[in-house]
Design a protein around this nucleic acid. Structure first.
Lengths: 343, 343
DNA sequence: CGTTTTTGTTGACTCGAGTAGATCGCGCTG
DNA sequence: CAGCGCGATCTACTCGAGTCAACAAAAACG
């Protein structure tokens, strides 16, 4: 039986400080907050000393109750174990911490039910904003948050939603450029390895791939669908190997999947990029250390995270939601046929 | 200027429910909590209907203030972008969520200063417990938490601390077994790639490696120290390649470092395991999809996370802290010389 | 039928901090 | 010296929910 009654409780409160300093509790607050009224320098000094002597720390929970703001941001991701979302979480946490906010992390384990549970839980905890990487790529259900005035930012969204803040990479154009780059190495038959997307819309990466193929007047490309992880990429790779008249290049929708795909190619004794050229999407650290190093589309993760924090804490309640799209750059390494500059 | 005054605030409070149901606020609480007094079935029904009609959700912050318990656990990791800590966070979050707790995540970015700031911040927020993966491997400074009665669990610790809860893998013995396994493939000269450890104690993995070498009566092994990430492993790999009379096998202290190390070997055109056999530590998903697949020591991450949550929420305040050590198993794949059973 | 016990309900106080409104005291002006 | 202004300080109420002492009503008992 957990002993909750004896839980964390401030040892020393504002009242104790006030008593020791010989002032009222209000003055203590004014000093701590540079409060709405000013305090005589001499009194400030007394209070400061009392605070130091007692080791007083203001109770954040009480402040949160009074102010209606917890100085906590929530973040919900499909799977924190995935390198991409881990990097995203790292970037968001950094940006949030620098702005003086703590971050609640919810892992939805690829389940919409769990995602909803986290959102509802965060709403109850009066977080000041939520970052949502939804497991579905159409507009997720955030009305509960909005109804409570909690600003929500969609991260890594794949379409252009309205009526809600959204931040994501420029999927279509950068994917097109990636595929065009493969074409510039002479490839005409470029396949797509695409993660399953729940929702009724086309993924931007798939769209960009199609655009590029159309632009170069190439035959229709083949698509290998699989889950958004290494195992999925591996599985797609096995299917890729079995196909007749194998494509000579592949565009893969995430670095993680690409790593799994590479393993399948290695197992079959194929060389990359000589037998199959590969480009992927995300630009995670993982892409740099696979073999061969992956050419990839790098998302500006830190900038996106900072923009997200600004959208939440630096935006008035009445300002309309905005969609912000970030340009990505191509990182050319060995897997596409370029030489890695590092080696 | 952020509009904090209009922040998240419950639209409907206990009072509204009480008014609509025609009862006192106390009764509403009793119904919501199955609370310390019982309520006549008819009244319960009225209250339930009022709650449903208004869409009332209890204010968690207010409850936290009154109870001194936020139902939040904190977790501090050196770097959430690292696959191992990401998996650990995923496991802890799952265990916490199942127990009805939310998780605050703090990334200390390999800095002791930031780690301390997170701990102190968590203490102020009256979290009910903290999971700490410290950047230092000697006993970290948790007195501030303890002083506030916040139960702390050290995760992935490398020595046996006293006076604080600690949970970690059996570093020494499993490392010894891993190195002995390399020896069973005929290797006599087995090097160690070891992450930098801040602190004055020997890492358990290094200790196990030494034990194994001593046990087989082998010559003294060589050590390559580097940072605990892929780039570090790559760097160690470059140095490894340059050394005269190269060792035929390596034991690496994490999968991440091993991935970087493998890249260095590939670049030099060496084959694994024929030219150099490799075993690593952690057992992350990454190890399964590298090329060749890594033989590794798998930590029972989910069990450790669950034990951690139990240690925090299922333990009385007066019970003494415990150290729990978890056995790991060897996952034998291709990189050590075993055939991967999957291929 | 009066009295005790039980059950249901309520008002009021509490957690710790923010801050408006009242109060106090001081210096300056007429 | 009365009167005013002003800065410093304090008192008291607030946020929303938990829960105890007190009370009312109903049930059980003799």
């Amino acid at each position: 039986m957990p002993d909750l009654s004896a839980s964390a409780r401030p040892v020393v409160t504002r009242k104790d400080v006030a008593r020791l300093a010989g002032v009222s509790t209000a003055v203590v607050s004014y000093v701590v907050n540079g409060g709405p009224k000013n305090v005589a320098p001499a009194t400030q000094e007394k209070v400061r000393q009392a605070i130091a002597a007692l080791g007083y720390r203001p109770n954040v929970t009480a402040r949160a109750l009074k102010m209606g703001s917890s100085r906590i941001l929530g973040m919900v991701v499909p799977k924190i174990g995935s390198p991409f979302f881990a990097s995203l979480a790292q970037a968001v946490e950094k940006a949030a911490e620098e702005a003086g906010y703590a971050m609640l992390l919810g892992d939805s384990r690829d389940s919409l039910t769990v995602e909803r549970r986290h959102l509802s839980n965060f709403a109850d905890r009066q977080v000041d904003g939520v970052f949502l990487c939804s497991v579905v790529n159409h507009r997720p259900e955030v009305s509960e948050l909005e109804g409570r005035g909690i600003r929500t930012v969609l991260l890594n969204f794949s379409e252009y939603p309205l009526e809600v803040d959204a931040i994501g990479p420029e999927f279509v154009g950068s994917s097109r450029r990636a595929v065009e780059h493969l074409a510039s190495h002479g490839h005409r038959d470029i396949a797509l390895v695409q993660g399953f997307v729940t929702g009724n819309t086309l993924d931007g990466r798939e769209f960009g791939w199609r655009e590029a193929l159309r632009g170069m007047g190439a035959s229709e490309g083949r698509v290998f669908r699989c889950s958004f992880d290494r195992a999925g990429g591996y599985d797609a790779g096995r299917r890729f190997l079995a196909v007749p008249d194998r494509p000579t290049a592949v565009f893969i929708t995430s670095d993680e999947q690409a790593v799994g795909f590479l393993r399948a190619l290695h197992e079959a004794g194929l060389r990359v990029p000589e037998d199959v050229a590969v480009m992927s999407f995300d630009g995670s650290e993982e892409s740099e250390f696979s073999w061969p190093p992956l050419s990839t589309v790098r998302q500006p993760i830190q900038q996106m995270a900072e923009a997200g924090v600004r959208a939440i804490i630096g935006t008035g309640r009445d300002e309309p939601p905005r969609t912000q799209v970030f340009d990505c750059d191509l990182v050319l390494r060995r897997s596409c046929g370029c030489e890695d500059h590092k080696s």
